[in-house]
């Protein structure tokens, strides 16, 4: 019984804080509203018995939201929301589309005869996940690894305006890179 109560709280909390993300003025509060929504989602996943993935969602999302807060404050015109100005275009159109999508999905959820679960969940789902990722789903593991590596390289290339020629000179033979602020090991 307590499980359904906790689920109800998480559901309402997740959707409410999700909506708050776009309702609140201050960008910092929008970021933490999104973080709250993720924390509720993480709890919901914990409720479903996936303890490892639930805690992983919480861990990953806290770090991601902190990085998002940095960019949020950097790029938004008035990050603290002290001078409220709305940066929205065709609000009603968006509202109509998303309401329509919700009704469509809800109808699907209610009408589709979902199959019954075959057996009971394994004792330790995380162990099953580990086995799968190292066994049958090895391709997923390799793909995720490559995608993350490609993302790191691409994001760095896109974000920085200085290349290695600016740092190490045209013949790339400068002994110490000339960065505005040197790193700890002089590299």
């Amino acid at each position: 019984m307590t499980e359904t109560v906790v689920f109800a709280v998480c559901a309402v909390g997740a959707v409410a804080s999700g909506a708050a993300v776009f309702a609140v003025d201050s960008m910092a509060r929008a970021t933490f509203a999104l973080l709250a929504s993720f924390l509720f989602t993480g709890t919901a996943v914990l409720l479903l018995g996936l303890s490892y993935l639930g805690v992983l969602v919480v861990l990953m999302m806290v770090m991601e939201m902190m990085v998002m807060a940095v960019f949020m404050v950097m790029y938004m015109m008035n990050p603290a929301g002290l001078m409220p100005m709305s940066m929205v275009h065709n609000r009603n159109g968006a509202l109509a589309v998303s309401a329509g999508v919700f009704l469509l999905l809800a109808a699907g959820v209610v009408l589709v005869p979902w199959p019954e679960a075959g057996g009971a969940p394994p004792a330790d789902p995380a162990f099953a996940l580990g086995e799968a990722v190292m066994g049958r789903h090895m391709l997923v593991m390799m793909l995720v690894g490559m995608v993350l590596f490609a993302t790191m390289v691409a994001a760095t290339v896109l974000a920085t305006s200085r290349g290695r020629y600016d740092r190490y000179g045209d013949d790339l033979r400068r002994e110490h890179p000339d960065d505005p602020i040197g790193g700890g090991l002089g590299r």
Binding site: L35, V55, V58, L59, V62, M63, M65, M66
Partner: peptide, 8 residues
């Protein structure tokens, strides 16, 4: 996860 909360 709990010690990352201190970042926030």
């Amino acid at each position: 996860a709990m010690e990352v909360l201190v970042w926030a």
